[in-house]
């Protein structure tokens, strides 16, 4: 099983310190959710793993591979990202967008092969968008577009899948269907790290939570250990009541008026 290991990763944007010496192990096979207030460093952490931001200090390893030393192409064969609400350029069909996930694998002199098409078809099937293959991405609903982006990430055949608020703009129906899919993908043996805003969704779907505040890891563990009134007050500055989900037994976070 893969293990994604961050050791003392620090990121600063000018004078603003976004991450301070964050060390974190993310094992494969579990859906790990990153939670925390705005500006706590969730996105920066995901960008550091994806390679779109270079950390000032620290190392990121996947198994024995130091991700920070890889080229963009080599890294994209290992790590795929699903952005919050990606700008999906007009004029591409769903199948064409999902095929872009093969970009790091395809030799431009030879072009795509049958086996690339098979991987694209399989990715679309896994994301439940096979019937949309010939539609233009611009005509799809937000939930469908998000599934296209997940399929594109799956077509990369990554060992690490990152999701940055991938459900933030979706209605509850689509949030649940996307997170259910993501959890299946994690349980199939991938490293999956998802930044989530909604604490209750995180409690319901994630196997493991990482609570970030001010660029450091405040708590890490199963939902019941992380979602406590004390930790949430410390991280978000709001007082909450924690109940137990009557059906699933997971923690349920209820806000209190000040």
């Amino acid at each position: 099983m893969d293990l994604l290991r961050l050791s003392a990763v620090s990121i600063a944007y000018g004078a603003r310190q976004a991450l301070r010496h964050v060390s974190l192990d993310v094992p494969a096979g579990a859906l790990v959710a990153l939670v925390g207030p705005n500006g706590s460093g969730k996105s920066s952490l995901l960008h550091a793993i994806a390679g779109t931001v270079t950390p000032q200090a620290g190392t990121i390893h996947l198994g024995g591979i130091a991700l920070t030393t890889l080229t963009a192409t080599a890294r994209a064969r290992l790590v795929a990202s699903v952005p919050q609400s990606a700008r999906l350029a007009e004029g591409f069909s769903v199948a064409e967008v999902v095929m872009m996930g093969r970009t790091p694998h395809i030799d431009p002199w030879r072009g795509s092969r049958h086996h690339d098409a098979a991987i694209v078809a399989e990715a679309m099937r896994a994301a439940g968008i096979e019937p949309l293959a010939d539609r233009w991405v611009g005509q799809l609903s937000g939930g469908e577009q998000q599934r296209v982006l997940i399929a594109r990430a799956l077509a990369q055949q990554p060992r690490v899948l990152l999701l940055d608020e991938a459900t933030a703009h979706l209605d509850v129906h689509h949030q649940i269907s996307v997170l259910g899919l993501v959890r299946i993908l994690a349980h199939q043996g991938r490293v999956v790290l998802a930044a989530l805003h909604d604490l209750n969704l995180a409690a319901l779907y994630a196997d493991h939570l990482v609570l970030l505040a001010h660029g450091t890891v405040l708590a890490s563990g199963p939902p019941a250990q992380v979602l406590t009134a004390a930790l949430i007050e410390q991280a978000f500055g709001v007082s909450v009541i924690i109940a137990t989900h009557p059906f699933h037994g997971t923690p349920l976070v209820m806000l209190r008026d000040r």
């Binding site: 994806a50 390679g51 779109t52 963009a72 192409t73 080599a74 890294r75 994209a76 064969r77 790590v79 795929a80 990202s81 952005p83 990606a86 700008r87 999906l88 350029a89 872009m100 996930g101 970009t103 790091p104 594109r152 990369q156």
Partner: peptide, 11 residues
């Protein structure tokens, strides 16, 4: 699409 997505797709 955009630069971040391009980079995440290995470009």
């Amino acid at each position: 699409f955009d630069d971040h997505q391009a980079q995440q797709l290995g470009v």
